[in-house]
């Protein structure tokens, strides 16, 4: 067990990197969508809700395929936005980030929304009558009070990102050292004769990262509860 090759280490690093970047990238959007869904009334709210939550119920492979159609060279975004800017996304680690972000997004939005929904609306009204504008209220009342939800959502999304497989393999492929993350590497080992031991070793790594993440989350939660 454990005799990891260079590409295995790269897969571990890439897994963490993809999950971290996807989480950080999604955070402002997740916050914005959660805010809209919690506090604003607008036409098409139900449609936005469905679109945001769709990745939760769709098979990741379907999401990956749709992303491929959208972001590929012939796709709408690929052709209209990415190509003129000279960005190549498909079959790079950045595509894995996009896939992870899309798949984990509903989890993040749900957690932040739950956090926001527990905030007493009177606190927001108090802040407004005390002279704070909307952005000010968001920054000084809503965000700090929704912090637990924000952290929970980030941890959840990061953890989900570590396990992303279906969408990633379609948009980013499974190129060792380039786009291969832990789950893809495990998949490769399982399909290789006598690869079981290595597959298991990578499973242990995967479990370790997840456990560390959950412990971190628990610790942060307790620390916040203490400071209340």
């Amino acid at each position: 067990m454990f005799g990891f090759t260079h590409t295995d280490y790269l897969a571990m690093l890439l897994s963490v990197r993809v999950a971290v970047v996807a989480t950080l990238l999604s955070l402002p959007f997740g916050f914005a969508v959660a805010y809209l869904m919690t506090y604003r009334k607008f036409r098409g709210k139900v449609i936005l809700d469905v679109i945001v939550n769709l990745p939760l119920t769709l098979p990741p492979v379907v999401i990956g395929y749709l992303l491929l159609l959208l972001l590929g060279q012939q796709g709408f975004i690929g052709k209209m936005v990415l190509q003129p800017l000279g960005i190549k996304l498909i079959f790079t680690w950045k595509a894995a980030v996009v896939a992870t972000a899309v798949v984990g997004f509903p989890l993040m939005v749900r957690s932040i929304r739950t956090g926001m929904e527990t905030i007493d609306v009177r606190l927001i009204q108090a802040s407004r009558t005390l002279g704070a504008g909307w952005f000010d209220t968001i920054a000084t009342v809503i965000a700090p009070l929704a912090m637990r939800g924000i952290i929970a959502g980030s941890v959840l999304m990061f953890a989900r990102g570590l396990g992303e497989f279906g969408a990633t393999i379609i948009v980013a492929g499974n190129i060792p050292g380039v786009t291969q993350t832990i789950p893809l590497a495990i998949y490769d080992y399982v399909n290789t004769p006598r690869g079981d031991a290595m597959a298991l070793s990578l499973c242990v790594v995967s479990i370790s990262i997840s456990v560390a993440m959950l412990i971190f989350h628990e610790w942060l939660g307790r620390r916040m509860a203490r400071s209340d």
């Binding site: 009177r122 108090a126 407004r128 009558t129 005390l130 002279g131 504008g133 000010d136």
Partner: peptide, 14 residues
């Protein structure tokens, strides 16, 4: 609201 300068005290302190 924030420019009206009408302060509020509610039933509970909030």
């Amino acid at each position: 609201v924030e420019h009206r300068r009408i302060g509020m005290v509610f039933q509970r302190p909030h």
